[in-house]
Amino acid sequence: MTHRSLYIAWALLVALSFGSTALSASGIWAQWPGVAGVAVMALAWQKARIILADYMGLQRAPRWRRGFDVCLTGLCLLMLALYAAPLVL
């Protein structure tokens, strides 16, 4: 893992975190809660992927990375479905 890639990972994580916080403060939740929910979970999913790949070194183990990606995606989709349930029921 190069130092440069760690700096890039950190900068991306900070940018994505600001994105999440900005979304929470915006008025989008009142108008399109479903869209906002998808956006917030997509940002969280991407942050988790960066931590796994760059901070935890799975970038050097592509097969493990794919396995973790599948499990993480499944968990995020499950949480998103549970969040969206009251919107569609």
Partner: peptide, 24 residues
Amino acid sequence: DRTAAGINTIVLITSGFLAALANA
């Protein structure tokens, strides 16, 4: 308190960066 939690997110990912840098 969403602001405090947002600040804590930045604090933790920066701490994680320093830990990853320490490892390297």
